[in-house]
Amino acid sequence: MTDRASLPKIDRAKGVRIGVWTFMVVVHAALFAMLGLVNPAPVQIPAMPPLFVTLEPPPPVPLPPPPAEPAPVAGGGAPAAPSRVHLPVKPPELPPEIIAPPKPAPTQPLIVGAAPVATPIPGMGQGGEGEGTGDGIGDGDGPGRGGTPPLILKGASTAEILSIVPPEARRARQAGRASINCVIRVDERLDDCRVVSETPVGFRFGEAGLRAAGFFRYRPPMTASGRPIEGQRVTISVQFGRQ
């Protein structure tokens, strides 16, 4: 007979482990068998109310805003001229027609002789006739008296005309002309000057022509005996060139 103490220690340890595992398997099997015999109470699930789903149309999509107008750009061309309404020219009114009377007015008789009351309008009369003689010596001042006409002695030089050009004409580089009528004095100067015409208008060529008259010198007209005649008027023309 074999003694247990003589068995190897390795086999005895192995047998102990097998026994422990076997015991644990039996215990677990008994526990599962006991759990299967127990009937757990069923879990009551509360009833859920029915759900109602309402389908609504989607909200309208807003339209995009209109594009912003570009801001006006400063500057540009000149503003447009205001419009004008041209109305037809009204024809001149004709004077009312004068209807001749059915009976002509009586003709006044022609009276020859002096009127008792003087009238401002000379009438048609007949002058008397007379005879008379006379003689005399002297220079006449009327038409046909003879002598010499006025004569220009000095005109305005180019430098003098340039010194009196109007500023408006100088800025616009505008040429022009002025006609001036003056009285010739005995000292050969011009006096009592007035503007006859200026071309073009609006550049003060007339005023400049009046100043230019101070540069002119005229010899007055002379009688046949050489006596100067004062008061004779003369018209001068002043030409203003383009600056």
Rank of each mutant, 00 (worst) to 15 (best):
A118D: 08
P59V: 06
E198Y: 07
A169H: 07
N181K: 12
L190M: 05
L151V: 10
Q243S: 10
P60T: 03
V27I: 14
A5E: 13
I161M: 13
P60R: 03
M24L: 15
S163Y: 05
L7Q: 10
G202R: 04
P143H: 01
P79R: 10
A224S: 14
G138L: 05
V16S: 08
P79N: 10
A30E: 04
R189S: 15
A156S: 13
R211F: 11
G241Q: 13
A5W: 04
P67S: 14
T119W: 01
S83I: 12
Q243H: 08
A105G: 11
D11K: 05
A100D: 12
G19D: 06
G142D: 07
P200Q: 07
N181Y: 00
V201S: 09
P102G: 07
L63N: 09
Q108W: 05
P72C: 01
A172N: 08
V165M: 14
H86A: 14
D135S: 15
V26S: 07
L153I: 15
M1T: 15
V16L: 11
R204I: 02
Q174L: 07
A114W: 02
A29W: 02
G241Y: 09
V196K: 10
E168Q: 13
K154P: 01
R170M: 12
A41V: 04
I111G: 02
I98F: 03
A159I: 14
I152A: 13
A118K: 07
I99V: 15
P150C: 02
A208E: 04
Q239T: 13
R219G: 13
F52V: 10
A78Y: 06
P91Q: 10
P116D: 10
Q126A: 11
K103F: 13
A74P: 15
L37F: 09
G36P: 00
A13E: 11
A100N: 11
A100C: 02
V201M: 05
P221N: 11
G138N: 03
R194K: 13
V183P: 00
V61Y: 01
D3Y: 05
A169C: 07
A169P: 09
G134T: 07
D139L: 06
A175S: 14
P88M: 08
H86N: 11
P106D: 10
G146I: 06
K90C: 00
R177D: 01
V27L: 15
I98V: 13
P50Y: 00
G136I: 03
V20I: 14
E168C: 00
T199A: 09
T148K: 12
